[in-house]
């Protein structure tokens, strides 16, 4: 008997919440802002949904609308990914400079 996808992904979801819980508590408070921007960026992995929708051979009106909608999803998610990772990197660079000067 096959396990239903809901239970399968549900189990992973629950375990991932626990992983998230412990990993996030280990983040130093000084880096809470980068934490927010980087989690922002990775949550934009939803881009895979947009790409899947773009890449289907669809037909009819709703198929066309679906493509248009997912094209916009693609743009929004890309803004989120690039903006999030790069702004995180920019912040972390600032922490780097000091570390050198201090040591």
């Amino acid at each position: 008997m096959d396990i239903s996808p809901l239970v399968y992904y549900g189990s992973i979801f629950v375990l991932a919440i626990f992983v998230g819980y412990y990993v996030v508590w280990s983040v130093t408070p000084a880096l809470h802002t980068p934490l927010m921007s980087v989690t922002n960026a990775i949550s934009a992995v939803i881009i895979v949904g947009a790409i899947i929708a773009m890449g289907t051979e669809s037909s009819g009106t709703s198929g066309t609308i679906s493509k248009i909608v997912s094209f916009f999803a693609l743009i929004f998610a890309s803004i989120n990914i690039f903006g999030g990772f790069l702004v995180t990197q920019r912040m972390l660079e600032m922490y780097k400079k000091k570390a050198k000067k201090d040591v």
């Binding site: 979801f13 949550s43 949904g49």
Partner: peptide
Amino acid sequence: AAAIIGFTLNNLALVITGALVGSSGAIL
């Protein structure tokens, strides 16, 4: 939101990431 869409699309990356980000925001 990302995690829920992950369930719809049966996508592991989305489910895991969504859970991580969700708990991160909740802890903060």
